[in-house]
Every structure is written in C-alpha cells, then in structure tokens.
Design a protein around this nucleic acid. Sequence first.
DNA 1: CGGGATCCAGTAGGATACTG
DNA 2: CAGTATCCTACTGGATCCCG
Lengths: 123, 123
Amino acid sequence: MNMPTPPAANTADCRGVSEILNRVGDKWTMQVVVVLRDRPRRFNDLKRQVAGISQQMLTRTLKTLERDGMVERTVCATTPPQVEYALSEFGHSLSEPVRQLAQWAAANLVTIHDNRLRYDTDR
Amino acid sequence: MNMPTPPAANTADCRGVSEILNRVGDKWTMQVVVVLRDRPRRFNDLKRQVAGISQQMLTRTLKTLERDGMVERTVCATTPPQVEYALSEFGHSLSEPVRQLAQWAAANLVTIHDNRLRYDTDR
DNA sequence: CGGGATCCAGTAGGATACTG
DNA sequence: CAGTATCCTACTGGATCCCG
C-alpha cells in the first residue's frame, strides 16, 4: 500500500481512540457501566443508583450499551415484568482501561480546574 | 477469566471519569494530542497532520487544551508569526492512560461494529 | 415496572469570509 | 501564518405523556 505520510503517529489508531472516547464519553454511559460493574441491576434500581438520570436517557444509554454488546438484557415475563441488566465480559474488558483513566481523573481533576481558573482570570 | 474488580463504584469517581471522558471525548482533542505526543507542531503543520479538521475546530481544540494546561503555546514574534504548540507534562500524563484505552479500541473496534451489525439485523 | 413516542432547548461541529 | 467573526445544521440531553 502507498504510504505518503511518514509521521510516527498512527492516524488509524487515533481515530479509533477518538471513536471509542466519543462513544463512552457521553453524559451517562460510564456512570451506568460503573454501577453495573458492581453487580447486575434492574431498570428502576439502576435509575436510583445513577443520580439525576431520566428514564429516557437511561433507556437510550442501556440500549446503546446492549447494541454494542457491553450489556446483556434479561427479561423475566412475570407480572409486573422484570428486566435485568448485566455487564457482559466485553463490557468488563472495557471497564479495565477505563479504570486507569478514572484513577487519572480522580488524581488530576483538581489540577484541571485550577488550570482553568488561572487561565480565565489571567486572560 | 473474570478479574475481581477492585475497590468498587464510588459515585464521585464515576462522575469524575465521566467528566474527563466527556472532556477528551470530543471529535478532535485526542487526535490532536496523539499528533502532539510525537513532537511539537505549528498551527498549519498540525492542521495538515489531523486530516479533516477545520482551522476553526483546530483553534477551539487547542485553546481548550491550553486552558486545561495540557498544551503549551509559544509565540515567536517574527514575520510571519510562528506559533508552536507542545504537549505539557500534564498533557503527557493524560496521554498514558489514554494509550491503554487506545489499545483496547484498536483490539475491539471490529467487535463493536460486528455487535452493532448483528443487533441491527436481528432486531 | 419498564419502557416508547414526542417535543424542545442547548451545544458541538462545520463552512466561509475576513484580518493582523 | 495564525488566527477571528458569523452563520448554520445536527445531534445530545431533558421533560412529559402514554402504554402493555
């Protein structure tokens, strides 16, 4: 294949990262994943654990996670119906590298906020 | 196979992760960071390396990165003016955990796409 | 209980044109 | 060269009502 661009940074790679970061970087996905990593939950249980989420957004978030194969949805045809959501193996495998990022976040969130404050006041 | 998931889900934590993921999860940030991790670059050089980005979005992305203290901006008052952007120590420290995620992304992007395809055709 | 269907506001992203 | 200034579109997130 023709390689016109020699630079070290792999273009395909960084687009992949971007795609993943964009995928899991929405407002609720990781909060749901982190709760599910603990143990499986039912819909309203989950809704209670993720503070501030609407049913709409929880539904959408779960559906997208299920579509990507990260969450498994189990329906018990009882009355009233019970639906349980669990993190799949695949979902767990993602949550590992994300934990790394979580640690960085925990350690550096304050610094970021400081940097912003300084930048804004300096300006 | 299943690793015991260490210290469990802290609500403050997962909001922190979400914030960071949301911060770096936009369309261009990581693509710029990955290029800058290689070596410092000037504006139009950067623009050439990040395929498809507009000057507008490059400007915005760089400004936000600078505000967060992840990129350092150096101006040489020559004619024409030269501005060099470099990843700061802080920026490098972030790019480490992101590399983990990048590896996961590279290894699993195909799986995700397969999962989506199956989900969509099954439905 | 676990959603689906709408409607609506805010923001991210993009296309140009212009400037010191 | 390295941006700013506009304007516009599309998507994300949220509120509400309804339904099996």
